[in-house]
Design a protein around this nucleic acid. Structure first.
Lengths: 241, 241
DNA sequence: AGTTTGTTGATTGTTGACAATCTGCATTTC
DNA sequence: GAAATGCAGATTGTCAACAATCAACAAACT
């Protein structure tokens, strides 16, 4: 049942750079490194007790992932995300997820269908018990299962990278699961398309699911007191929350 | 009219790593470095007259782009592409392009519409003159214009990265433009959706265009003597062509 | 003979030092 | 007083040397 996040290479190589990368990633995602804060190579290197080389490589890799931004001769800073970028990430994720739904429906793999059906049952149970935490986990698993079974490694990589970046503004916690019933219904539509072997239907259902998920998320924002303007990049900075 | 390929950062910083990266990229794409060949850090470094550091960084970056593959403690090798991966790249590119079409149609930007209309006229002219080279260039420009005006930087980056990787098997030259008339028609459908401000129509048209483009490309393969089996990774290796 | 083990050569992974570049502040000049 | 200039400090970019790891080959053992 455990869903591995990194199905990249069977050989899980553990080089220093990898460890450093995970550590910096953790610090950025947990907010330990504040959004927009500079990340000095020397400082990180000293704190982790390694040389600047691996830190450098890790930062370059994280820049590709979108978690940090690298300014020439100025170093790396933790990314801040504006409202427009949130929408862009949702749009990109939606396109990738829709593609995955289509492919899974086309392949019509028995193992995957079983996996998704089990997930569906568990999710309905969590919905009945009002167990939000379990639901949140199952929800992520559902999407992850579909993407990981798309057999399109490149799309898988990009998807996970985007999701990781989205953690930057999803950090507001588990309360961020509005309209569970609606979401479950959409999952059912997706699953129906997959089970029925209808790639077009599955793709559309997947696309709409993420689109609505974006709208649901944006809805939770407007409820807040701080008025988010779409134009002012300062005010649309969500990283602080 | 010039369409910049890298609208990433206004500041086009020229660090050594960037130059090395471009050079290795060129060698891989031109076949100067054969597909599957090992790329030793020391060798490249010596040939370019730089240290191993920049070469290392460049290889890591190219690995993210998909042009080379890095095996732990074994070094980098030029990627080889199999038939399944070709399909995957087309699928991914299609999803991104469809998204871009949708966004451009939604924004309905005057400048972009004019740009695309001009491109369309030129393309029809090239079609009339049977100028395949001009058509090929305009065709690329059409797609590039749409993607670059999607205002989704992350999607733009991934798209260009995918296209670059596709060069690995598109190297067979300009003759690779089958059914020009059909392609132009699809462009017209896309443009109609954009001009009409119909995101759904534009998205579908874009998706179908790439899907059919994939089929057209695959069609040019089956005409060849060498029977390409879908299962045997050795025989489906296209990198040699 | 086949398998295992040790050795060798080469390549990558990592390090610390040096050079180039940028930011901020003080100084100078108009 | 404001803008331009130059200097100091710190940080990144680059380099060459060292350590760790791996593939291949040869020798020894069952």
């Amino acid at each position: 049942m455990a869903m591995q996040n990194k199905p990249f290479h069977a050989r899980e190589y553990a080089t220093l750079t990898t460890h450093v990368e995970r550590e910096i990633e953790r610090r950025v995602l947990t907010g330990e490194i504040a959004a927009g804060a500079r990340i000095g190579e020397a400082l990180i290197a000293e704190e982790l007790g390694v040389s600047r080389g691996p830190v450098r490589e890790a930062l370059r890799s994280l820049a590709q992932s979108g978690l940090v931004e690298i300014l020439p001769n100025k170093g790396a800073i933790a990314r801040t995300i504006g409202l427009d970028e949130v929408k862009n990430l949702y749009a990109l994720r939606g396109a990738l997820f829709a593609l995955a739904c289509q492919e899974v429906a086309r392949r019509h793999d028995n193992e995957t269908v079983t996996l998704l059906r089990d997930n569906m049952s568990a999710m309905r149970a969590a919905l009945a018990c009002d167990d939000k935490e379990a639901y949140y986990r199952l929800n992520v698993d559902f999407h992850t299962a579909i993407i990981n079974h798309s057999h399109n490694q490149r799309a898988i990589d990009v998807y996970h990278s985007v999701v990781k970046e989205m953690h930057l503004f999803r950090r507001r916690g588990l309360s961020n699961v509005p309209n569970i019933a609606e979401s479950v219904k959409e999952h059912e539509t997706i699953l129906a398309g997959i089970v029925g072997g209808d790639p077009d239907a599955a793709r559309e259902a997947g696309r709409i699911h993420i689109e609505r998920g974006c709208n649901r998320f944006l809805g939770t924002l407007t409820e807040e007191p701080s008025g988010l303007s779409k134009t002012d990049p300062q005010k649309t900075n969500l990283a602080g929350h």
